[in-house]
Design a protein around this nucleic acid. Structure first.
Lengths: 188, 188
DNA sequence: TAGTTTGTTAAGTACAAATTGAATGTTTCT
DNA sequence: AGAAACATTCAATTTGTACTTAACAAACTA
């Protein structure tokens, strides 16, 4: 019978940790893909996520095997969406960066920004659109077929307005963090 | 002084309606851009949004000045995210499609799907990762520096797990529509 | 069953985005 | 102030994506 070697005893713990990190880095970058960042940028964040101290552009470059300009622009994108911060490192002239690891903050910021922009665009357009349609509807000289079309459009936009009012509310709760009062984080 | 013409009386109501629709179509396609569909696909949805009856591929093609295969693939993408439905039209051999106009449904479905996928990917990876790390941590032969690293990683992933448990909850509430109980739609 | 109409797949092209080495700015140190 | 060390911008190339025409497949009509 083949000798059984218990890898968890003689095995390389280092290798095991690295394997775990590789797996999580893949998962993180794949999902960040869904959050409006390119796979390369996502992979950079995921890599930084497992560095427990700030890292420099040169270290990023080495870790990912990419160019420094690429790291420079990627890390800026991550700063733009507030999940990476620049930190000052004593004794080093290089810029250092550290990943924001609190996903709750990430959620609040990402959806806060995203929804806010959408809500504003819609509410502005809807207001104008409904005013215009109202004029058509209330004009006694408008012929019947057109008035009907205008009324259909108007009602449809009114439904949209109700939705965007709701989304506006959700956005405010998300940005302020109050959403975690409405939908609490379960303790275990 | 220049003669003032009151467009709301002598003006073309038809033109006014079309102008409103053009504006809203722009707004809708710009924002859908933020929802993982290309601008062309967003524009197709926006166009269908103002058709108050089902339309065919040929009508889409004419409305947007694009090719039919393009309409075919675009409309399928819209079906995939459940905001367009195929409907049967009596007496026509052509397929007809109609836009889902309830944005609340759209919200539930879109974020339900999106978050669900993300949550599943994470929870599976996190479970495996934490199991592996636990082995390293509990192995008495692991040297101290590695154990420390493993523990840091473990705790970080535990924080992530709490977040994804919360997102899982939010996802369920969103898919089921219960979210509208937690965060009610204001009546006016 | 032959001939149309309609929808989809496939191949090719044009366009847009990402990446890099080289060049240019900018800060820090002496 | 001048030099050295970093970071960023720029131009050019590569890579990837979206769209179109053309060919194909399926469904209907007569």
């Amino acid at each position: 019978m083949e000798e059984k070697r218990n890898d968890s005893h003689n095995g390389n713990a280092q290798e095991k940790i690295e394997q775990v990190e590789r797996m999580m880095i893949n998962t993180i970058s794949e999902t960040m893909d869904l959050y409006g960042v390119t796979p390369a940028v996502g992979r950079l964040y995921a890599t930084m996520y497992f560095k427990h101290e700030p890292i420099t552009l040169d270290e990023m470059k080495d870790a990912l095997g990419m160019s420094k300009p690429s790291m420079s622009t990627s890390v800026r994108k991550l700063q733009d969406i507030n999940i990476v911060k620049k930190v000052w490192q004593k004794g080093s002239r290089k810029d250092s960066f550290i990943a924001e690891k609190n996903f709750f903050n990430y959620f609040s910021h990402f959806y806060g920004m995203k929804w806010e922009r959408e809500v504003n665009m819609y509410l502005v357009s809807l207001k104008k659109a409904q005013e215009q349609l109202k004029e058509v509807i209330e004009d006694p000289e408008t012929d019947e077929a057109l008035r009907e079309k205008a009324e259909l459009d108007y009602q449809q936009l009114e439904d949209a307005r109700v939705y965007y009012r709701w989304l506006e509310k959700l956005t405010k709760l998300t940005k302020s963090g109050e959403i975690f009062d409405y939908i609490p984080v379960d303790e275990e």
